[in-house]
């Protein structure tokens, strides 16, 4: 439980800082730290229900601080979490490059899904090719920041007692190997 709330608080705090940092480092250059946190939790966390709840809450917080429809980021964050859980089981994501590539790919598809769901619910949204390029750029930036975020989140989870709690399945594997 302590790990859950620590990660939730950290995620929300990161979200707030992200909004302020975007004033000097505008998108697509500003990494989506919240999304990276959701991917990290999906890869490392094996408790499915609490992980889903965490992804939902972080997504809802993003909805509040963003101009999106309420519930949009929440929905897609859960799907991102699930995709990370299943990819973590099927793919070998050990090492720096696979992790960065995976984070970048998930970010790219997250952007596409955001667009797809938006046009489904909001009429008149048009496709602008320039946006695809920006989405790709943003995904690459996310990929570059992924190892840092994963490392920071892992350390935070350990600090919150991840090994001793019921969520001990929060495997702490980084580029340096299992901790």
């Amino acid at each position: 439980m302590k790990v859950f709330f620590t990660l939730l608080m950290a995620g929300v705090l990161v979200l707030m800082l992200e909004g302020a940092l975007a004033t000097i480092l505008p998108p697509p250059w500003c990494p989506d730290l919240r999304l990276l946190a959701v991917i990290c939790i999906g890869l490392r966390w094996q408790g499915l229900a609490p992980g889903l709840a965490l992804a939902y809450l972080l997504g809802s917080s993003a909805d509040v601080l963003s101009g999106s429809l309420m519930g949009l980021h929440a929905l897609l964050s859960m799907l991102t979490f699930l995709s990370a859980v299943f990819a973590g089981r099927q793919l070998n994501l050990k090492g720096l490059f696979p992790l960065m590539a995976f984070a970048a790919s998930v970010s790219f598809f997250y952007g596409l899904a955001l667009y797809a769901v938006s046009i489904f619910f909001v009429s008149g949204i048009q496709f602008v090719p320039q946006w695809l390029w920006e989405n790709l750029l943003h995904s690459l930036v996310n990929g570059l920041f992924a190892p840092l975020v994963f490392e920071a989140l892992t350390r935070l989870a350990v600090w919150a007692g991840a090994d001793d709690s019921s969520e001990r399945a929060l495997f702490l594997e980084t580029s340096r190997g299992p901790m």
Binding site: L48, A49, L52, A53, Y56, G59, S60, D63, L69, M70, G71, L72, A74, L75, M78, L82, V117, F121, V122
Partner: peptide
């Protein structure tokens, strides 16, 4: 528990989107 939580949260998210629109 996981499928129940997933179903409930997806419904909640969709309800939020629809009510927002």
């Amino acid at each position: 528990s996981a499928p129940i939580v997933l179903g409930a949260l997806i419904l909640l998210a969709l309800a939020s989107i629809v009510s927002d629109r």
